[in-house]
């Protein structure tokens, strides 16, 4: 474990908690893409199948359980408890256009052709594009609540910190996983224009609004 990976995990955890609290406190999921949250729940489910069979450390197990629990709780709040506030008219990104190609790619490009490895690879590829419905929704509504932008910033930073972690592990631990690195680069690049807007607008105290 290195500082970049720990910072990345904490940033990821912060994002997940911020989103859950935002929905719970405001009792509203306005501006939140339920499709992205379903994709994230799918990412954690397919990645943590070895949660009970492959013990790595208490930290690893606890964090996986928190991620899984919060992901499903968020989906529950969006589609069940606060369904009335779900903005389905703007959450129209065709998620199947992500899941099907990612599923095919996981079959073709992986480290080992075994069920667990293919599902892990699927989760890595899916995570890199899972935010697209959310970013698409913001581009459609033309704006985002400030708390939502903080959620997105923390979520985007988590994988950017992981990229630094992989550089660190490459030099100090001779560790190298091309699939995770390439997917992580794609994932972080997708946030770039949001990062630009976040830094130039939200951090200047303005509301994030896109030229509609």
């Amino acid at each position: 474990m290195n500082i970049f990976r720990l910072a990345g995990d904490l940033s990821h955890l912060a994002a997940i908690i911020v989103l859950l609290l935002k929905i719970w406190k405001t009792r509203s999921c306005a501006g939140i893409s339920g499709k992205s949250q379903i994709l994230f729940a799918l990412v954690f489910t397919t990645r943590y199948l070895d949660l009970f069979t492959n013990f790595i450390s208490p930290y690893n197990t606890v964090m996986k359980m928190i991620y899984l629990g919060c992901a499903y709780a968020t989906v529950y709040l969006i589609y069940m408890k606060f369904k009335a506030t779900y903005d389905g008219n703007h959450d129209t990104f065709r998620a199947e256009f992500l899941v099907v190609p990612v599923g095919g790619l996981a079959f073709l490009v992986n480290h080992e052709f075994s069920p667990l490895e293919i599902l892990w690879t699927f989760s890595i590829y899916l995570e890199s594009v899972a935010i697209l419905p959310q970013l698409f929704m913001i581009s459609k509504t033309g704006e985002a609540e400030t708390i939502t932008t903080h959620y997105l910033f923390a979520l985007g930073m988590y994988r950017a910190l992981y990229l630094i972690n992989w550089i660190w592990r490459y030099y100090f631990e001779n560790f190298f996983d091309l699939i995770a690195i390439v997917a992580g680069c794609v994932q972080t690049i997708l946030y770039c224009d949001f990062f630009y807007l976040y830094i130039t607008k939200v951090l200047q105290g303005k509301k994030l609004s896109l030229p509609a």
């Binding site: 990976r5 995990d9 996986k64 480290h111 560790f175 190298f176 091309l178």
Partner: peptide
Amino acid sequence: EKEMPSKDEL
């Protein structure tokens, strides 16, 4: 570098 599946990561 040897490729290692990054299973110790979240």
